[in-house]
């Protein structure tokens, strides 16, 4: 009962980090694994130029399709580019597309959901029907069509992924707002003479955001998957830019002739990062519940 107030001052956050990581590894191993995977990939992305042993876009006609070796850890692809370096730089792009895309999705979805849920009535109905209409299309097909129609630039890919994902956040926030709107503390806030705007932004939004934030890790995983899919079918990021989906596509052609490493390693990286985000997403969901925000974490 006597915790939050006695939580250590901010300065000791870093000092107690190793301890808290150990506690986390013991009590929430899946969360720990997710955080570890995402953390490692984030570091790879941040320090990509320092870590990668070769230039990821340097074609080398003398080292085409070399199997994994001491010099090329994951082998080389059909243009003689180092697969290991390309995977490291690919994580840059994975984060670089997924994070802004989810931000776009939240920027569109959260205000819409907030407005629709609080306002109710006609605007709510219209929004819901529009969202349903969007959901009729399989989201990947929709993203594919939109990118094909608007052009393959990185900016377009980010906006389209965000746009296709926005309904998820809108629905999530709307559902939260609907239940919050008539909750005891909102009713009390009304009785205490707060204006609608104050209630909406001070009391409803922070509570409604919890669900959206918890979903964000899962949506990051989804965005990475979609951007890889777009690249794989050829409407996303174009080779020779090191994008995992594009690399898998290139490698798929070599699979039949026995050069398995070109497609396998980017595929593994993709699976691992998506898995990491999903594990993390589950953990965040638990953690964001303030009733659990007690004791040592």
């Amino acid at each position: 009962m006597s915790d939050a107030a006695s939580s250590p001052p901010a300065g000791s956050w870093l000092r107690t980090l190793p301890l808290r990581l150990r506690v986390m590894a013991r009590h929430a191993p899946t969360a720990f694994a997710g955080a570890l995977i995402v953390g490692v990939f984030a570091l790879l992305a941040l320090f990509a130029p320092l870590i990668s042993p070769h230039d990821p876009m340097q074609a080398n006609p003398y080292d085409v399709l070399k199997p994994p070796s001491g010099q090329f850890w994951f082998g080389t692809d059909g243009a003689g580019m180092d697969v290991f370096s390309r995977i490291i730089h690919g994580s840059c792009l994975a984060f670089g597309i997924a994070v802004p895309a989810v931000a776009v999705a939240m920027l569109i979805g959260v205000p819409l959901g907030l407005f629709a849920g609080y306002r109710g009535g006609m605007p709510d109905e219209v929004l819901l029907r529009a969202m349903d209409a969007l959901r009729i299309f399989p989201s990947i097909i929709l993203a594919l069509a939109l990118v094909a129609a608007t052009g393959k630039s990185l900016g377009n890919i980010i906006i389209v992924i965000g746009l296709v994902d926005a309904p998820i956040f809108a629905r999530l926030v709307r559902a939260e707002v609907l239940s919050l709107r008539h909750s005891g503390f909102v009713e009390s806030a009304v009785a205490a003479g707060n204006t609608r705007w104050r209630i909406l932004f001070i009391h409803i939004l922070p509570n409604a955001m919890r669900g959206a934030l918890a979903q964000s890790a899962v949506r990051l995983a989804w965005s990475i998957r979609v951007s890889a899919t777009l690249a794989f079918v050829g409407v996303g990021v174009q080779p020779p830019t090191p994008e995992w989906g594009a690399m898998i596509r290139q490698g798929a052609e070599q699979m039949v002739t026995g050069e398995w490493w070109v497609a396998l390693f980017p595929g593994l990286a993709l699976v691992l990062l998506v898995l990491g985000f999903n594990l993390l997403g589950d953990a965040v969901q638990d953690w964001l519940d303030p009733r659990r925000r007690t004791g040592v974490r």
Binding site: A4, S183, G184, F185, E187, S188, A189, V190, A191, A192, G193, N194, T195, H203, P206, N207, R210, P290, R291
Partner: peptide, 25 residues
């Protein structure tokens, strides 16, 4: 009305546990 309620007239409701915003101190 907002100028009066919460100031000149205030209310204590039943079910105190749900009448406080869970995410604010």
């Amino acid at each position: 009305l907002n100028r009066l309620r919460g100031a000149a007239i205030s209310m204590v409701v039943q079910s105190p546990k749900t009448s406080l915003d869970p995410v604010r101190r």
